[in-house]
Amino acid sequence: MKWRFALLVALVLLLALARLSVGPHLDGAGAMHFGVAMPTAETLPFRANAVAGAAVVGLLLGLAGLALQALLRNPLASPYTLGVSSGASFGVACVLAIAATTGISTQALGGEFGGAVFGAALSLVLVWMLAKRATGRDGVALALAGIVLGGVMSSGAMLLEQIVPRGLRGDLLAWMAGRIPELPDPSALVALWILGVLALIVLWKAAHLLDLLMLDDDEAAAAGVRLASTRAGLFIIGGLLAAAAVSFAGPIGFVGLVAPHTARLFIGHRHRLLVPSTALCGVIVVLSADLLRQGLDVGTGRLPVGVITALAGGPFFLWLLSRSRRGGSEWNL
C-alpha cells in the first residue's frame, strides 16, 4: 500500500514537471507547435500558476467528492450533488444580469467569482434547510434536496439568460465550460490552498470516523460516531470545497467522482490512506487534463479543461462502473 501511495506522489510530481516543461513554440515557418519547451523567466510564472491552480482545483474537488460520498453514503455523489455548481452558475448569471441591466460594472458586484461564491453558498444553505424540513438530514434527503434545488437554480440561470438584453449566453456558457486561470488572483490561489490543505488535514484526522460512517447508522453511533455533528461537518467541508473550486475555475465535471473511485481502486477503502490518495488523484486528474489540453488543438485554440475532464472522465467512470457490476456490489469499485 505504501509504495502505491508513493507512486501517486511520484505521478503528481511528474505531471507537475511535465506541465512546467511543455508549451507552445514556433517553427521556422512561424507555425505554432506544442512540445517540450523549457520555461523561460517569462513563461515560468504562467506555467507555475497553471500547475498551482490545476492542483488546488483537483485537491478541492477530489476531497469534496469523497466527503459527500461519505456523507450521502452514495458512490454516485459528486461535489455537485448538493446543487453547488448550479447555484454558482445562478450566482454568476445574477451578477452578469444585474451588471447588464443596471450598468454597474461586474467588478463592483464582486465579479464572476463573487457571484459564484454567493450562488454556491445560497444553494448549500437552502439544501440544508430543505433537507431538515423533509425527513431530517440523512443522505437521501440531502441528495434529493440538492438535485431538486440544482434543477431550480439551473432554470433560474437560464431565465436570467433569457430576460437580459443581448443575452448572456456566450458569457455564461464560457464560464460553465470550466477553466484553470493562468493568471489567477494570487490571494485567491493562496486562500484556496489554505482551504484545501486544512480540509485534507481535518478529513485525514477524522479518517476513523469516516470509516465508521460507512457502517449502519446505529452501528456507527454505538461505535462512538456523533452522527449529527459528523454529518454537519462533512456537509460544510464538502460544500465549502466544491463552492471554492467552482468559484475559482467554473464547474469542472467528473473530477469529484473519478478521483475518490480511482483512489479506492488503487489504495482500498480505509480512509486513513484514502483521504490523501483521493487528494492526490484529484490533483492527477486535473493536472493531466490541463496538460492534455495544452497539446490538443483542433484549430480552436486550447479546449477548456472542463471539456477534457468530462470527455475523459465519462468513459473512465463507465469503465469503473462496469468493474463494479462484475464485483456484484455498487461500492465494489
Partner: peptide, 30 residues
C-alpha cells in the same frame, strides 16, 4: 495560432507571437 477569444486567453501563446496590439470585443461582464 489561436491565442484567445472574447473571454479567455492563452498567455504563453500570446507571448510567443509577441503582439503589439490585442483587439477584442469584451463580454458583457467587461
Amino acid at each position: 495560432p489561436v491565442v484567445g477569444d472574447f473571454r479567455d486567453f492563452d498567455a504563453e501563446r500570446i507571448l510567443l507571437v509577441s503582439p503589439s496590439h490585442i483587439v477584442l470585443q469584451p463580454p458583457l461582464s467587461g
